[in-house]
Amino acid sequence: MIDIFTYSFMIRALLAGVAIGIVAPLIGTFLVAKRYALIADSLAHVSLAGVAIGVVLGLNPLLGALVVTIAAAFVIEKLREGRRVTAEVALAMFLSSGLAVAVVLIGLVHRVNVDLLSYLFGSITTVTTSDLWIILSLAVVILATIGVLYKQLAYTAFDEEQARAGGLRTKLLNQVLILLAAVTVVVSLRIVGGLLIGALTVLPVAAASQVAKSFRQTVVYAVGCGLAAVLIGLFTSYYLNLAAGGAIVLSALLLFVIAFVTSRIPTQR
């Protein structure tokens, strides 16, 4: 069991995984409360275009993903605010266009040896030390921002109109939340992969909401569930030679099923 810790790539993957297991469901809780759960999926697909741009320009692909995903996040929010297109349409547009840009760019520069599959589905062997530093630094920024703005973000997520009537700067808070979602996507890209990040932001929240009684409990349970899913997924992927991203998301799904079933078992009085 302990031999997993003798490999430095596994230690990097575990550290990155712990960061992802905390921040993805944390952000996911606010997105679900805001009925905006699908944005993580759309941004994840856009981040793949950023990876491709990073590769083409010879930059760290994660930095390329960070810049492009943040830019796309603001454009999506602008479209949503302007109401010229509905939120679902904006998300669908970016979801498919992001992947299209990635595929075309990688095809154009086929001389570059890039393992796009590892960004699509995640890979525990590809987390470099510089990736790990980027992931941990961004995770700290996300946690600190949520720590400071927890109540304001929660109020805006639950009822934007009332929050605005109460004097909160909801436009700015929405931009902060979407920025955090973009950063979370990039943080998760290496381990979970662009096609599976959406599930890690939503499934732990769905599991937590089956058993939680308050919003605060939902946040805590979702983070616990996300952490458990990442750790179970990473260990099983190591010992059973499975794709890490898929194993993590399936673990989250299993935890949701357990929460769903146990919450429906009548308690004895």
């Binding site: 929660a154 308050s214 919003f215």
Partner: peptide
């Protein structure tokens, strides 16, 4: 969409 208490 998510649980929230009276106090919250």
């Amino acid at each position: 969409r998510l649980p929230v208490t009276v106090g919250e």
